[in-house]
Each structure stands twice: as C-alpha cells, then as structure tokens.
C-alpha cells in the first residue's frame, strides 16, 4: 500500500519535472516563479484570494454532496445559473436590497438547477454524474442565450450584461489596494465552519454522513436515505448557486458568456483533495487558487498554463490512491 502511494507520487513528480524540462525552463525556477506569482507580493496575494473565493464555496458544494455519496459534477452549471440569476435581479433592484435579493435568487437558482438531478438519483436511480453534466450543458446554453438576448447590454459588442452599480455590489471588507479582502471570502469561511458544525453536531448531518459512508447500514439505522440524497443534492446546488452569486456581485459586477473559467470542475478537485473534513477545503481551495494565479505568471516564462491542470490531475490521482480506495479494499 505504502509502496503504491510512493510509486504514484514519484511518477507524478517525474511527470511534472519532465514537463518543465520539456518547456525549456529549469524546474526549480518554474516552481519558484509559480510561488512568486501566487504569494510573492500583496497583489499576488490579492489575486490568489480572489481565485480562492469561488473555489472555496464551489468546493464546499461538491464536498457536501460527496459526503452524502453523490458526485455533483453540476456545480459548474449551478454556479453559472446562480451568477446569472443574481445579476438579473440586481439589474432590476439596485442597492443593498438588490444585493440581498440577488444573492437569494442565486441560491434559489442553484438549488433549482440541482433539483432534477436529486430527484432522478433518489427516486429513479439515474446516475447523478450524467444528469448534472447534462444540466451543465443546458445552463451553459441558457445563460449564453440570455446574455446574448434579453440580458445583453446593448452598448456592448460582446454578450454581456450591464455593469452593476457600485452600490449593488458586495463590498470589500478590507481594502488597501492592491490588497483586498472581499466579504464573499468571509462568507465562504463562515459557511464552511457552519457546515462542519452541522455535519458533526446535528442529527441531519449525522444521517447525511451515514448515507454517504454506507447506504445500507444507514437504511438499517433508520435513515430515510432517499430523502437525504435528494436534499443533499439540492443543498449542494444552493451552495453552488451562492458561489456564483458572490463571484458575480463581489468581483465581476456583471454576467457574461463564459462567466466561469471552469470553477465547477476545479471545485471537484478541491473537494477531493479536502478529504473528510470541511476544513480541509481551506488549504485545498487555496492551493488551487494559488495554482490558478501562479500559472499565469509562469506562462510568461513560456510554460503553457495547461501545466496547472496536469498538476491538478496528478494531485487528484495521488490523493485518490491514498484516500479514495473503494470499500472492500481492505488489504
């Protein structure tokens, strides 16, 4: 077992180093640049934190479903519809009221977008991976159509909404440019702590974890497993929607075609890396945020940004070999 982990880790490391050598960049220099790009200055930190915020919440969405034994690959779509719904509401209702209503709309949209997947999983035994991928596709087309049509800012060439008024944005909690910490980041941290408490201390949280850990044992322990699966999927979607709403209202200030550069997919990696505890999401989201931010810096050195995805994939492989062994693997 240990040998396998070691083998996989070494193989992964060799692959990354090999890739860097191929790029004609000394591996140590590239890694140093990666770190500098992510943490080397205040603005680097600000960029990393900005990248981390949506990953934290989207990662939590995936994490929650994963605890219930569900792979919510649909966070991407839930995030997109959440962002779009929040911006649509905020365009109509400006000011603080708009922010509150818009955030709620984002949450509701995300939950709604996960509902079919939850229903089909719980009552039709249809695999959630397929339904959520399909829902991602529909979310993508729907948002593209709306942002090119009814929601489009007529003064712009590209498909995008109007920019929200400053008063209709989620404010920075701390701002000393270039360093800023947005309220959205804090919301993510609070929600993670709350989820950790909820999972550990409440009957519902206990039953959710039992469902994910051993469906049959949960059933024998009186857990209504179908209902748990449905509601965890919906809750996961709601958090995904919130991630989109905060990203839109805190950082972007508008919605546009291609709003998410793959936050939903990165968040799968974030959740898998986090392991069993929600607090594992903090280092894991930070690592992904840093990778996203840092990879733009090494691009300047001539290392294609794809390298960060290679690292991501390898990280998941290494962690999966350590942690995600299937049940029955007791050797």
């Amino acid at each position: 077992m240990r040998l396998r982990v070691a083998l996989v880790s070494v193989a992964a490391l060799l692959l990354v180093v090999g890739a860097l050598v191929l790029s004609g960049v000394p591996p140590t220099e590239a890694l140093a640049e990666l770190a500098r790009g992510a943490f080397g200055s205040k603005s680097a930190w600000a960029g990393t934190l900005r990248e981390t915020t949506p990953l934290l919440l989207a990662g939590l969405a995936v994490f929650l479903a994963l605890r219930a034994g569900l792979f919510n690959i649909g966070v991407e779509g839930q995030l997109v519809v959440g962002a779009m719904a929040s911006v649509a509401v905020c365009l109509a209702v400006p000011g603080a009221a708009g922010v509150v209503l818009g955030t709620l709309a984002g949450v509701a949209a995300g939950a709604l977008w996960a509902l079919p997947a939850g229903l089909i999983k719980a009552y039709r035994n249809g695999h959630e991976v397929i339904t959520t991928i399909m829902l991602n596709g529909v979310a993508n087309f729907l948002s593209t159509a709306l942002v090119a049509g009814p929601l489009k800012d007529p003064s712009q060439q590209s498909p995008t909404t109007r920019l929200l008024d400053a008063s209709t944005r989620i404010p920075d909690l701390y701002s000393a440019p270039p360093f800023r910490v947005n309220l959205g980041l804090v919301a993510g941290l609070v929600l993670i702590a709350a989820t950790a408490w909820w999972l550990r201390r409440t009957v519902a949280g206990f039953e959710l974890r039992a469902t994910g850990a051993n469906l049959r044992a949960a059933e024998f322990a009186g857990v209504p497993v179908r209902r748990v699966m449905l509601w965890s999927m919906v809750a996961s979607g709601a958090i995904g929607g919130l991630a989109g709403a905060l990203q839109a209202l805190a950082y972007e200030g508008r919605f546009y075609a291609g709003f998410s550069p793959g936050y939903g997919f990165d968040s799968l990696g974030v959740a898998i890396l986090a392991g069993a505890s929600p607090f594992g999401l903090l280092p894991s989201a930070l690592a992904f945020g840093a990778l996203a931010k840092g990879s733009t810096s090494i691009q300047i050195l001539g290392v294609p940004k794809g390298l960060s995805y290679v690292i991501l994939g390898l990280l998941i492989v290494v962690f999966a070999v350590v942690r995600y062994r299937r049940e029955g693997a007791r050797d």
Binding site: A19, S23, F71, V129, F265, L268, G269, I272, V303, P304, K305, G306, L307, S308, Y309, V310, I311, L312, G313, L314, I316, V317, A320, V321, Y324, R325, R326, G328, A329
Partner: peptide
Amino acid sequence: RVDAVVSGMALNALAFGATNF
C-alpha cells in the same frame, strides 16, 4: 482500487492540461 469516477475525473484534468501544454 481508486473510485472510477474520481479516477476518470483526474484523467480528464490530466488530458486537458497535457494537451494544452
């Protein structure tokens, strides 16, 4: 004995990154 969905996910990410690279 890695979960097949996790493995598939990782390989998708790997392929996406490596092809770009």
